[in-house]
């Protein structure tokens, strides 16, 4: 699968990760701004996969550092729930990840995204995705 270029969606909280994601313009990565980790909906994650993402990351504020108090915790819990749904569906749950990123940590964002990207590359295209 050397020539497979995955598509990764990063749902980034505007108070932290999005401030970094905006700066980094990584190929194959689509950052989407969300107002807070708490705004993440199961439906939206599934929808991103349905729209052709090979992987989805939810990136919110560091633990105990959420502007909206528990939005990041809610995001993590929702991601875990959707991981369960993905397994039921038959999609590798590793395609979805939650990570906390601080607004000033470009390095960490880059690292996390690269790591995920490489992982997706190894996993290959989404289960059932029509290969071009």
């Amino acid at each position: 699968m050397a020539d497979f270029n995955p598509s990764l969606v990063t749902l980034c909280c505007e108070n932290s990760a999005f401030l970094v994601a905006e700066e980094e313009n990584l190929p194959g990565v689509t950052p989407v701004k969300i107002p807070c980790g708490g705004q993440v909906e199961h439906y939206h994650i599934l929808n991103a996969f349905d729209q052709g993402a090979d992987g989805v990351m939810v990136l919110a504020c560091l633990k105990e550092n959420c502007k909206h108090f528990w939005g990041n915790d809610r995001a993590e819990k929702k991601v875990n729930y959707v991981k369960g749904m993905l397994e039921n569906i038959g999609i590798n749950a590793e395609r979805l990840a939650y990570s906390p990123v601080a607004a000033n940590n470009e390095y960490k964002y880059g690292e996390l995204v690269k790591e995920m990207y490489d992982k997706l590359k190894e996993m290959g295209p989404m289960e059932g995705k029509v290969k071009k």
């Binding site: 598509s7 194959g28 689509t30 705004q39 929808n47």
Partner: peptide, 20 residues
Amino acid sequence: SFPGYTDEDMQKEFKKIGGK
């Protein structure tokens, strides 16, 4: 409904997936 983050808004963002 949350202006800027409705289903349509999110879907518009997801349309960009994979460079489309």
